[in-house]
Design a protein around this nucleic acid. Structure first.
Length: 266
DNA sequence: ATGGTCGCTTGGCGA
């Protein structure tokens, strides 16, 4: 089973890019973030025609928005609000597969956090930290636990030194500050999570999934960050047989600033 | 230290 995650930055604008990615990768399940569209205007028919009849969608006008597209049936679709905001940053579903027992899938779009890494001066950063804490506490409080779980999304944090182009220069930049990487670690250990991508691609090796639009040539200095992640539960750890990023897409016409990340479960 | 670019929507916000 192949599971991909991609911050698409407008699903309507990049439908043809998504179709190409589908042709190239053939994922069984695709999780999108920043769809930037209401559910009424979500291109359901087009995506169904591309081979994904099972869809879980949580969108709003202009901002945020998450979606799960699947070749396999999805059950128990849940859209959750965090920090008392109905801002479409999380959707979960159970993938009904015949090879594995059911897999509980969580698709997150964690707040970016603004520019200043100080929760007192910057309410967006405060929101990001509060969001992480709330998800962490929620995971700890869950009593009914599904065995097989996968968590994906644009987590907007690059946890490892090798997840950014310069560890030293980014320590005070939102996405790589110690307070964030620590919060992400707490979130990770509050559940059964293993970083599936880093199980395949060694933690020493630089790996990025995002490059800013604010650069004439993103390849020149390769100033990227790994903001997009796929985690699996311990129960699936041994099943992770591949993980990769589709870096070519960043050079396509009208690219998203994020690239797709994919794992294979065997 | 500053400004650089996108997308949605048409001014300004969020990234």
């Amino acid at each position: 089973m192949k599971i991909s995650t991609w911050n698409i930055n407008s699903v309507r604008l990049r439908l043809s890019s998504l179709a190409q990615i589908i042709r190239d990768i053939c994922p069984d399940v695709i999780c999108l973030q920043e769809t930037k569209v209401t559910n009424e205007l979500f291109p359901s028919k087009e995506l169904s025609a591309l081979g994904y009849p099972y869809q879980a969608v949580a969108g709003m006008k202009s901002y945020n928005g998450v979606a799960i597209l699947s070749r396999l049936p999805l059950t128990k679709i849940i859209v959750r609000d965090w920090c008392k905001k109905a801002d479409c940053r999380h959707i979960s579903a159970i993938i009904q597969d015949t090879t594995f027992s059911p897999i509980e899938l969580h698709n997150f779009y964690i707040p970016a956090g603004g520019d200043t890494p100080n929760p007192i001066e910057n309410e967006k950063f405060a929101h990001k930290l509060a969001f992480l804490k709330e998800v962490t506490e929620w995971q700890k409080s869950r009593t009914k636990k599904t065995k097989n779980m996968v968590l994906v999304g644009d987590l907007n944090i690059a946890p490892l030194p090798s997840d950014v182009w310069s560890h030293k220069q980014l320590l005070k930049v939102v996405s790589h500050t110690p307070i964030e990487t620590e919060a992400l670690k707490q979130l990770q250990i509050s559940g059964p999570w293993v970083d599936a991508v880093r199980k395949i691609i060694p933690p020493q090796k630089n790996l990025f999934t995002w490059w800013s639009y604010r650069s004439k040539d993103w390849t020149k200095n390769n100033r990227g960050r790994r903001l997009d992640h796929i985690w699996v539960s311990e129960s699936l750890k041994q099943n992770v047989s591949d993980a990769n990023v589709y870096q070519d897409t960043r050079s396509w016409e009208r690219p998203s600033d994020h690239i797709p990340v994919t794992i294979t479960l065997s």
